[in-house]
Design a protein around this nucleic acid. Structure first.
Lengths: 218, 218
DNA sequence: AAACGCTATATTGTCAACAAAATTTATTAA
DNA sequence: TTAATAAATTTTGTTGACAATATAGCGTTT
């Protein structure tokens, strides 16, 4: 049906392992024992090793020769670097989205935004509730950019790394209402088809989130 | 000695295969036979398979379940998407480089630029001579950005893909002297420590190169 | 008690063999 | 001759076994 619905065993294993790692099933830097993983997933070590090579390319694990795989431990500096890159890529996505989004897609984004507003209002502390990925504001914009590579990098590669980092470090306080206000302005720019402004606002939005994290982990 | 000087067999194999693929040892979309590769590299199929999984993550090969690996065939559209992303990332690199480069590094970049000027002048047709990667103008700026992730993505991932594309498609006519003039302006902005301008100029530079390719392959 | 070295154990890296799937070749019928 | 079908071959996917390396435990020495 779907062209990407391949049944590559190592890819499925990589995905499952990714979910476990990001979800916190392993401690930071914890050793990933091949035999143990093989037993648990009920396969032999071959496919497990292939999956680990994939995760190494995604920088979720670190491989040392003759010592195997460990869960990657990213420093705060690493994540700042990641967020620097993310700022520019999310900016690209917002720009492209503003240029390409149809009225229908914009409507969908409005509906999503309104739901976020209600969710934040419902939480008395005004904290930003993390909704499922495919409902996320950023996710929709990235999708709407029409650039699959952008989606792969931001949602496929970066998002797991960020989730992992957030788990490994003290949970950074979200920016709640402020972030929502930034979203509102981005949405407005997209509505107007103002690509340049959408990019600038998105970059500021990500930069603010980076500075927030940078401050919390200094 | 070097922490990254790991002797991971599959990584070495992946690197060697990458070089062959990018260098044109295989036709576009050509099947990569595991047994054949194993024989040629004098290893068994295990490490070869691991290397192929890595290359799949880098989008250099495409894996189909029960059908193995083929050299990836990227469409012109794919490459436009890639260059869209590259525009923003090279912009990020130029911005960071302008903020961080020392006087020494700037001097080195000047020397490199002058060498390029001479090389282009020497070629009577004024075509842009492709110099080895580590001497390349862009390479130096990306390095100088101080962001290793930027380096990995641009030089590690994107550069091979672009080389492969250039080989698979009709060689796009370089922009020679014009590109050099753009380099000169970028260099000037970096000299002044004008990060904002360096980013803008670099983005224009990449955008021009994208439009050039887009026109040639339409 | 800490440091060193040795031994035993466990883990990784590699390989060759087997099963399942796809591809190719050969065969038959229209 | 061409199309469809079936057998034969090749290729992938997976596994368990073996060798090389690293780790952990233990006793000895300083």
């Amino acid at each position: 049906m779907d062209a990407t619905a391949s049944f590559d065993r190592s890819e499925i294993l990589a995905e499952a392992l990714c979910e476990e790692i990001v979800g916190g099933a392993f401690g930071p830097g914890e050793k990933l024992n091949e035999k143990e993983l093989a037993a648990r997933f009920e396969v032999s070590r071959g496919p497990i090793r292939e999956a680990l090579k994939r995760l190494a390319e995604r920088k979720l694990v670190v491989l040392s020769p003759n010592a195997g795989a460990k869960v990657a431990q990213h420093t705060t500096e690493d994540i700042i670097h990641l967020l620097d890159v993310r700022e520019h890529l999310e900016g690209a996505a917002a720009k492209l989205a503003a240029e390409r989004m149809t009225a229908e897609e914009k409507q969908k984004l409005h509906t999503l935004f309104d739901a976020h507003v209600e969710a934040v209002n419902a939480a008395e502390d005004g904290s930003y509730v993390q909704l499922p990925e495919d409902l996320d504001f950023h996710y929709v914009i990235i999708k709407a950019s029409g650039n699959p590579l952008l989606f792969t990098i931001l949602c496929g590669d970066f998002y797991p790394l960020l989730r992992m980092f957030r788990r490994q470090h003290k949970n950074v306080q979200g920016r709640g209402v402020r972030a929502l206000e930034e979203h509102r302005r981005i949405l407005s720019a997209i509505d107007d088809g103002d690509a340049e402004l959408a990019e600038i606002l998105m970059r500021r939005h990500i930069a603010a989130s980076r500075n927030n994290m940078s401050k919390a982990n200094s």
